[in-house]
Simulated assay, not measured.
Amino acid sequence: MSAPTVTPTTEPDDSDAEFSSIKARTQGQLVFRRFIRHRGAMAGLIVFLGITLLAITSIGAGPFPGWWDKTFTTTGPVIDGGRPTLDVLPAFVDGDGFAIGENPFGQDTIGRDYFAQTMQGTQRSLQIALLVGLVSTVMGTLVGAVAGYFGGVTETVLMRLVDVIIAIPLLVLAAVVASGTNGTATALGLFLGVVVWTSLARLIRGEVLSVKEREFVEAARAMGASPARIIVRHILPNTISTIIVSATLTIALAILLETALSYLGFGVQRPDTSLGLLISDYQQAFATRPWLFWFPGLFIIGIALSINFIGDGLRDAFDPRQNKVRG
Rank of each mutant, 00 (worst) to 15 (best):
P290H: 11
R83K: 15
E207Y: 10
G62I: 03
G82S: 05
I22C: 00
F318R: 07
S210P: 05
A61I: 09
I56Y: 04
N182P: 09
G111W: 03
K324C: 09
D281V: 01
S20W: 07
V211P: 04
T154S: 12
S241I: 02
F115G: 00
F35M: 09
S274H: 07
R112M: 14
R315P: 01
A225L: 11
A116Q: 00
A254P: 08
D319K: 03
T259Q: 10
G66V: 04
T85N: 12
R270S: 14
T156Y: 14
A219G: 05
H234Y: 14
A225V: 07
T239S: 15
L54F: 15
S226Q: 12
D163P: 07
M139T: 15
A219Q: 11
T5D: 15
F115N: 00
A187I: 04
R39V: 13
T137V: 12
P4Q: 10
I22A: 07
L188Q: 00
F299S: 10
I56R: 01
D69W: 12
G97I: 09
V208F: 07
P8W: 06
L171G: 14
E155G: 13
L314R: 04
D96N: 11
G66A: 06
A317G: 06
D87L: 11
E18D: 12
D113A: 05
L188S: 01
N308S: 14
S210D: 14
G28H: 01
A222K: 13
V177Y: 06
A228D: 14
I251H: 00
S125L: 07
F35L: 14
E258M: 08
G148D: 06
I56W: 04
L253Y: 11
A254E: 11
D316A: 01
L131S: 00
V232C: 13
S179L: 12
I165D: 13
A247V: 01
D319G: 02
G144L: 07
E215H: 03
G206S: 15
G50D: 02
G95P: 00
V176H: 02
P90N: 11
L203I: 15
G62Y: 04
G81M: 06
F64W: 15
F318S: 08
F191C: 13
G311R: 02
W197T: 11
R315H: 03
P84R: 02
L134Y: 08
M159D: 08
R39G: 14
I300A: 03
I300N: 01
P8T: 13
A260M: 09
D113W: 02
R214H: 14
V172A: 13
A220S: 15
G76T: 08
R25Q: 09
F64I: 15
T181W: 02
D69A: 13
P237G: 06
A61V: 10
A61G: 00
I240R: 10
G40Y: 01
T52Q: 05
G40C: 03
A285G: 00
T73Y: 05
I168C: 10
L89K: 06
G183C: 10
R321W: 03
Q117Y: 00
G302I: 09
D16Y: 09
W197E: 12
N182K: 15
S179H: 11
L257M: 14
